[in-house]
Amino acid sequence: MEVRTIKVFTTVDNINLHTQVVDMSMTYGQQFGPTYLDGADVTKIKPHNSHEGKTFYVLPNDDTLRVEAFEYYHTTDPSFLGRYMSALNHTKKWKYPQVNGLTSIKWADNNCYLATALLTLQQIELKFNPPALQDAYYRARAGEAANFCALILAYCNKTVGELGDVRETMSYLFQHANLDSCKRVLNVVCKTCGQQQTTLKGVEAVMYMGTLSYEQFKKGVQIPCTCGKQATKYLVQQESPFVMMSAPPAQYELKHGTFTCASEYTGNYQCGHYKHITSKETLYCIDGALLTKSSEYKGPITDVFYKENSYTTTIK
């Protein structure tokens, strides 16, 4: 009895394709271990004539594949690729409408935090270190965002349907971005203890939790000093293409032309909904596939993004 075979390709990165001759009487799992086709788990399936010449994702289970996976995804987590594939199996079914010149995501599976993050990423200057993220990001900007969303979920250790947080998501993504040249110098002034300067680099240099107003941050924000008295913390120097200011959701007025974009969060910790506000020729609110415009805006804002380049204080 002759062994019926077909020729397929296996890959971990969709760049390096490895030619395989597979036995049609055995499952993919018996031949390769966990195997995925377009995100779908085909591990328990036997090869079919229609699979001839198709590319299958496999887990990096030998040295060659491990090197290829690390170079593309910059992670050695053995569960990463499987999590990416199972997320992709959902995100490829989502709709990605162009809204006001940006790629958004039609609401499904509690994905409003991903839509808000995706919209924000198209408006701030950011370059990702893992080629996987950078490639998928370019495709997302062009309207094909399924891979990018699935990668975000995998890097953030999230599953489809789980509630997510924009600030946490951005923080994970910033860790995989090139923020080497970003720098922030802060000064804390206390009447009792004097003053202390701190220099922050990388992710810490672009994120701040405690106030939404970048102007206020430049002037000074009140913080408790270690001595128990009130101290003032203010920005001395900022070198970065953008800054992200966050605070627990509270009524906040966004003035046209003073910011790049913002995240609105309605609801409580267990259950809520994100919308995205962007400042173009007027203010726009993007909620999944829905767009509304207004000249002014007041609502429960939790993150505001500002364009920056270089700032030095005039406070002496």
Results as ranks from 00 to 15, higher is better:
S79F: 04
K106H: 15
T75E: 14
L121H: 01
S240K: 06
E281Q: 06
A262V: 06
E204H: 08
A150E: 00
K201R: 11
L186I: 14
C225Y: 02
L186M: 14
N111P: 00
P78F: 07
H18T: 14
Y72F: 11
Y72R: 11
I223G: 09
L119R: 00
T11F: 03
T120R: 06
F32L: 08
Y252F: 13
L179R: 02
V243S: 05
F56I: 02
Q270V: 06
K44H: 10
L283M: 08
T103F: 11
D287G: 04
L126R: 04
Q237W: 10
P241D: 15
Y265R: 12
T302L: 03
Y155I: 01
G143T: 03
Q222C: 09
A154F: 03
A145Q: 02
V236H: 15
H74M: 09
L118A: 04
T192S: 12
E253C: 09
T282D: 15
V22Y: 00
K158R: 15
A250H: 12
R66N: 06
H74N: 05
Y297L: 06
K298I: 15
V58M: 11
Q230C: 06
T91M: 02
F56G: 00
L283G: 05
G267I: 12
Y72K: 12
L200K: 11
K229V: 06
K158H: 08
N309S: 14
L291F: 14
T10M: 08
G164F: 01
T55G: 02
T169P: 05
Q230K: 10
K127H: 10
P60E: 05
G82N: 13
L81M: 12
T211S: 12
F217C: 00
V3I: 14
F70C: 12
Q175V: 04
S181G: 15
Q123M: 03
F9N: 15
M24W: 03
Y57A: 08
R139P: 01
Y274P: 07
Y137S: 05
E68S: 08
V188N: 05
L173F: 00
A146Y: 02
V3E: 09
Q122T: 02
K275N: 13
Q216I: 06
G202L: 04
P78S: 09
N309R: 13
S86C: 10
R167L: 04
H256P: 08
Q31H: 15
E215N: 13
T192H: 13
E144T: 06
L200Y: 08
T76V: 10
A231K: 10
T260A: 04
W94H: 01
N14P: 04
V188E: 00
D135R: 11
A40W: 13
E71L: 12
C193A: 01
A262C: 03
T169G: 01
D287R: 03
T159M: 12
F9P: 05
Q30L: 14
Y311H: 13
E308F: 12
T198S: 11
K307T: 14
N157H: 15
C112I: 00
E281T: 02
V99W: 12
N309C: 14
I277A: 04
M170K: 00
S50L: 09
N14D: 11
K255H: 12
A146M: 04
S25T: 14
V188D: 06
E162M: 07
N187F: 04
L200P: 04
P241C: 11
L151Q: 03
K46G: 14
G194L: 10
E239F: 08
Y274C: 12
K255N: 07
C271K: 12
N147P: 10
P47A: 08
Q196P: 05
Q237F: 11
Y137R: 02
Y137K: 00
K219C: 05
N111G: 03
F217S: 07
V21R: 12
L163V: 12
V236C: 09
K293F: 08
D135V: 08
I301Y: 03
T313S: 14
F70L: 11
T91K: 06
Y28P: 02
T266P: 09
Y172W: 11
V99A: 00
T312F: 14
Q237T: 13
V221L: 11
K7H: 13
E162Y: 04
N187H: 04
T314K: 15
